[in-house]
């Protein structure tokens, strides 16, 4: 199994001194975060797949890698991003991006929209069948 690190390089600002400036800084941080690019590591390089604002927390999108592979990219409530292969190994259909994101024991998973098997988003391991897994990809936002 490929070991995966999720790199999040979103800036955090901790210099605010009053509530008013804190709100202003948070708003501008939000704007900047929305403009950030989400990149996925593939074939030794980083491929930009979408803007962070394209990702709805708790949902995924499908993206094409330069070599034509399909991946599913997710963002959770805490702002962490994940990428796994889009193909559901149980049915062969390219649909994992359309599954629901959930968490159990603090770990995020996606449930296939077809037969509901769950895959850990950090390891790709199927939580309902040890012998099955999906590929995972490193993600960063910048």
């Amino acid at each position: 199994m490929t070991a995966v690190t999720t790199e999040v390089t979103t800036e955090t600002t901790t210099t605010a001194t009053t509530p008013a400036t804190a709100a202003a800084v948070a708003a501008s941080g939000e704007e900047r975060a929305a403009g950030l690019r989400v990149e996925v590591r593939a074939d030794g390089g980083w491929a930009a797949v979408c803007r962070l604002s394209d990702l709805v927390p708790g949902r995924g999108v499908a993206a094409l890698l330069p070599d034509g592979r399909q991946i599913a990219v997710f963002r959770d409530r805490a702002g962490r991003t994940y990428a796994v292969g889009n193909r559901d190994p149980f049915t062969g259909a390219y649909v994992l991006s359309r599954g629901l994101l959930g968490s159990a024991g603090g770990r995020a998973f996606v449930a296939s929209p077809l037969l509901k098997q769950r895959f850990d988003l950090a390891t790709g391991r199927c939580l309902d069948d040890d012998a099955v897994s999906v590929p995972v990809y490193a993600v960063r936002t910048r």
């Binding site: 708790g58 959770d76 409530r77 599954g99 629901l100 994101l101 959930g102 968490s103 159990a104 603090g106 995020a108 449930a111 509901k116 769950r118």
Partner: peptide, 9 residues
């Protein structure tokens, strides 16, 4: 604080 799951959501 978590995500919920495919059942409750």
């Amino acid at each position: 604080g978590g995500e919920g799951c495919e059942i409750c959501k």
